[in-house]
Design a binder for these strands. Sequence first.
DNA 1: CCCTTACTGAAACGACTGTTTCAGTATGCT
DNA 2: AGCATACTGAAACAGTCGTTTCAGTAAGGG
Lengths: 174, 174
Amino acid sequence: MTARRDELLEAAYQFVLDHGLADLSLRPLAQEIGSSPRVLLYLFGSKDGLVRELLTRARRDELDALARIDGGGLDDVTAALWAWLSAPQHRRLLVLWVEAYARSLVDPEGPWAGFARGTVDDWLEVLARAQPSGERRTRAGLARRTRTLALLRGSLLDLLATGEEQRVGAGLVT
Amino acid sequence: MTARRDELLEAAYQFVLDHGLADLSLRPLAQEIGSSPRVLLYLFGSKDGLVRELLTRARRDELDALARIDGGGLDDVTAALWAWLSAPQHRRLLVLWVEAYARSLVDPEGPWAGFARGTVDDWLEVLARAQPSGERRTRAGLARRTRTLALLRGSLLDLLATGEEQRVGAGLVT
DNA sequence: CCCTTACTGAAACGACTGTTTCAGTATGCT
DNA sequence: AGCATACTGAAACAGTCGTTTCAGTAAGGG
C-alpha cells in the first residue's frame, strides 16, 4: 500500500541529495517532484515526519553499502570502505550525511535526533566484523576500529572539501 | 571606532555558540543580546554580513589556538591539538565548526563559502610546521600530515557524537 | 552653534513558512 | 449499489523572515 508515498519519498530524496536539507521547504519541493504541500503533509504527517523518512532513506543507502562489504581483515575492509566513500557518485549522499550529522550535533531534538550517534555505532559494528573474534572483544580491538573509523571519516571530510582524491588517498594508505 | 559593533558581534558570537547557525534569525538574536534587528542590519549590512563576521570570529578562536601550539615533532603537536579539540570547554566552538563546515559543502554560495576548504589549509599548514623541513616538502610528508589531520578530525566527529573521550582518545594514540 | 557621525526605535513591506479547512475525485471491496 | 479508502486541489491561517522607510537622539569637532 501507499505506493504513491514511496514514489514521492524517492523523488524527494533525489531532490534533497541535490539541494540539501537546510533550506528544504515544502512548496518548492512539492513543485519539483510533481506534488503539493497538501499531499506531502497528508502522506508524511508533517515536515518533520518527511525529514525523518528522508534520513532513514539515506541511512538505508549507507547500510546497503556497508552490508555489501565483507570478507578480509580490517585493512581489506578499510580499503573497500574508502573505495565506496571516495567514489564520485556517492558524493551527494555523503554531503547530505555530513549535513545531517552536523545538524544532529547542534540540536538533539528534531527529526535528526540521534543521527550522529547512530551512524558511529553502525560503522563501528561493520569494522568489528572485520576483526578476528579474538581481537574484537579486547580494548585494543575497540581502539583499533575507533581509529580506523576516525581515519576514514576525517579523510572523507578532507575529500569533500578539497576534492583532492589523490592526496587524501595517499594519506590513508601511508 | 565602531565599538558598539565589536561588542554586539561578541555577544552574537556567544549566542551562536549556544544556538547554532542553522536557525539563526535576527529578531530573537537581537532580543537576547539587547539590540534590535534594525541596529544589526545597520552595523553589519545584512544578515549574511553578520554571519560572515561570526564565522571569521570563530576562525579567529581556532587560529589563536593553533598559533599557541608550537615546538616538538608531529606527534607532540598532534597530542597538543587533540588536547585542545577534546577539551569540554571547546565543544560549543567545535560543533559550530562542524555546522559551518557542512553548510559550506552543501552550498558554496553564501557567507560560509570556502569555509571547509580554508580550514583544511589552515590545519595542514600547522602540521607542516611540525615536520622537519626535509620531510615537509616530500610527497610522503604531505601524505603524513594529511593522515594526521584526518585522524584528528575523524576523532573529533566521533567525540562530538558520542562524548566517549576515553575510547576515542585510545584510538588516537594506538 | 552647527553639522557631521554613530547609533537607535517603531512600524511597515512583501515574501515566505508549516499547517489547516473544506472541498472534492477515483478506485476497489462487499 | 453503496461505502470506505486513498489521494488531491485551492485557498486561507497565523506566524516569521530579512529588509526598508521614516523618524529621531546623543556626542564631538569646527
